[in-house]
Amino acid sequence: MKSCGLAALFASLTLAAHSQDGNAGIQEATTQVRSYFESGTNLMYAIGAILGLIGAVKVYSKWNAGDQDTSKVAAAWFGSCIFLVVVATIIKSFFGI
């Protein structure tokens, strides 16, 4: 029975030591993840710009070809670009960066 009590004591001491290291690890992970947000939002802006250029070329070619669904394609591409910019802005404001 004494060995069971010693094992429980040792386990609780080990758990307490790991929880302190765990808190430091969580803080370090939070700091690292927050450092990526600026790069991530800039990447989303760049992707939005590239999609906007590709969409503009696609809409222009459809317009010159006389396709009837030009406005639908233009709205879809414009909407996707706006979505990326809005998501990047919301993420930036949500996490306070």
Score class of each variant (00 low, 15 high):
52 G>E: 02
67 D>A: 07
51 L>C: 02
37 F>S: 11
26 I>Y: 03
38 E>H: 05
23 N>C: 14
63 W>I: 03
23 N>P: 12
29 A>R: 10
27 Q>Y: 12
77 W>A: 08
23 N>D: 14
53 L>K: 08
91 I>C: 10
93 S>W: 14
36 Y>S: 10
89 T>D: 03
25 G>W: 07
55 G>K: 01
42 N>I: 09
59 V>A: 04
91 I>P: 08
80 S>R: 07
17 A>H: 14
54 I>V: 13
81 C>H: 06
27 Q>H: 13
94 F>C: 14
7 A>H: 08
91 I>E: 10
28 E>M: 09
47 I>L: 07
92 K>M: 06
66 G>M: 01
47 I>D: 04
27 Q>P: 11
83 F>E: 07
41 T>D: 00
22 G>N: 12
29 A>D: 06
50 I>Q: 04
3 S>E: 11
3 S>G: 06
72 K>P: 00
56 A>L: 04
54 I>Y: 04
62 K>V: 00
17 A>T: 14
89 T>M: 05
31 T>M: 09
16 A>E: 09
71 S>I: 13
27 Q>K: 11
88 A>S: 01
43 L>E: 11
81 C>S: 06
76 A>G: 02
50 I>Y: 05
7 A>C: 09
30 T>Q: 13
39 S>F: 04
18 H>G: 15
59 V>R: 04
90 I>W: 02
70 T>S: 05
